[in-house]
Design a protein around this nucleic acid. Structure first.
Length: 424
RNA sequence: GGAGAGAUGGCAGAGCGGUCGAAUGCGGCGGUCUUGAAAACCGUUGUCCGGGCAACUGGACCGGGGGUUCGAAUCCCUCUCUCUCCGCCA
């Protein structure tokens, strides 16, 4: 969430930036400022009274020691009213803080200066396109048909075991998954990312830290008995490694990578773009997560973009990089690049990665800070993350674009991992 | 799941209900000494919220919440977590 101090000092700018995200903030910002004001004045008064009470307690203590019981008892009476009023003020402060928090949590992150205005996906800005868009004749099969033809992905059995969106990968299909995961992890390691294997269930605090909770419960599967959530992305457990952490300046940037399965309820998304691998409830993804100094975070974002791009490039898939407009960005992001690969038989672009800088929006929730040498105060770090990459749509594009009369060709770079060159 | 023990500063580990934000040791940082390093010695060392340009200053924090008391790290209740033993188990 945004820090109230920042809002205080930059109200006009905040409103203007929120406008880019099509968020009308006037009312809620005013409410936040008002509550913060109440919070401050209440605390000032409470602190004053507490100081007085502390002082009295000390005096009473020494009076008792000196045997001046009468004076002590007299002084005691004064503390009674202080006790009353501090209790009241304490409650007032608590409720002001709570209410303020409730309000702050509803304000989205501010988009970066460079983010274009826009309503939705149609206003996004294509920053780069690479590769030939394959021209396939009408006999070209979409990946769900190829999956069946070569018996490598079994959607129906997944439905039986669990439900729609939980496919069973078989034989070379399963090996392809494993190959991609290992390839992505190896590449991440080469690029300087430290591999971790986090839990794939998280508690509420973690969900809150990265911004999935509150309000976005619909996205995550919830195990109610234990009050745990299945992760929608490794971003959640990996970033939360650093919840309540104060890093040293010299530890920055932190660069982590993790493979996890990801679980998404996708409540309310039906229609034809859910066909096959296009939208699943469970899928595999290798994620990269960075934590950096505010001055360097956009440089790191560019590095992450380069890394994700290199993966798609090596897989020899046609792709484009899209900078999201304000209206299409997530609640928590300040700047997001999406990566899309072209899936030849479906004849459409599929999002396979999303790389974002959250600036201090998550860090503020996470209380993730670092010690700055120049500044006495600990500063909020910037958090970033991106997919590198999500598997299913990569597989969809690979299957479709590489289909031949003899079978499906595996990209050269993957062959050492799959140990086969062709799915046939 | 059953029984017991515990939770204090980066770590280890003290702490008669008042002078405890907290002894001591280790670690970290700065310095003296040294050609350099080590050792030794000296100093320093948490977080958050207010006020102040600042020096500085008020308040809060000893797992979380509540209570007793003029006063709680210290007493009581409760929750959570950790550890040990038993059971079950990949």
């Amino acid at each position: 969430m945004l820090s109230i101090k920042y809002i205080q000092e930059n109200k006009e700018k905040v409103l203007e930036r929120l406008g880019i995200k099509n968020f009308k903030g006037e009312e809620i910002i005013d409410k936040a400022l008002e509550l913060d004001n109440l919070r401050k004045t209440t605390q000032a008064e409470l602190d004053r009274q507490l100081a007085e009470a502390n002082n009295l307690a000390k005096i009473i203590g020494s009076l008792f020691k000196e045997g001046k019981t009468r004076e002590a008892n007299e002084a005691k009476q004064k503390t009674a009213q202080l006790k009353e009023s501090t209790k009241e003020l304490g409650l007032k402060l608590e409720s002001a803080e709570k209410e303020l928090n409730l309000v702050l949590v509803q304000i989205p992150n501010l988009p970066h200066e460079s983010v274009p205005a826009g309503k939705g996906a149609e206003d996004n800005c294509i920053v780069k396109t690479h590769g030939e868009i394959p021209v396939m004749d009408n006999t070209a099969l979409p990946h769900w048909d190829l999956a069946k033809k070569y018996d490598i992905i079994d959607f129906e059995t997944g439905v039986k075991i669990t439900g729609a969106g939980f496919p069973v990968y078989k034989g070379k299909g399963a090996k392809l998954q494993r190959a991609l995961i290992n390839f992505f992890l190896d590449e991440a390691e080469k690029a300087g990312f430290f591999e971790v294997q986090p839990p794939i269930m998280v508690n509420e605090d973690s969900g809150f830290g990265t911004g999935q909770l509150p309000d976005k419960e619909g996205q995550m599967y919830h195990a109610e008995i234990d009050n745990l959530y299945l992760v929608p992305t490794a971003e959640v457990p990996v970033t939360n490694i650093f919840r309540d952490v104060i890093l040293n300046r010299k530890d920055l940037p932190v660069k982590y990578t993790a493979y996890t399965p990801c679980f998404r309820r996708e409540a309310g998304s039906y229609g034809k773009d859910v066909r096959g691998l296009n939208r699943l409830h469970q899928f595999d993804k290798v994620e990269i997560v960075c934590i950096d100094h505010p001055e360097n975070s956009y440089h790191t974002l560019e590095e992450m973009v380069k890394h994700a791009e290199s993966l798609i490039f090596k897989l020899e898939l046609p792709y484009r990089i899209v900078k999201l407009c304000g209206g299409d960005m997530s609640f928590t992001s300040a700047l997001t690049y999406d990566f899309e690969v072209y899936s030849g038989a479906q004849k459409k672009w599929l999002e396979v990665s999303s790389v974002s800088n959250f600036e201090s929006f998550q860090a503020n929730r996470l209380k993730l800070r670092f010690k700055d040498d120049n500044d006495k105060r600990n500063q909020l770090a910037h958090t970033l993350n991106g997919s590198a990459l999500a598997l299913p749509r990569i597989v969809a594009a690979l299957l479709e674009n590489n289909q031949t009369a003899e079978g499906i060709k595996i990209p050269k770079v993957l062959v050492p991992y799959t140990k086969f060159e062709m799915i046939n």
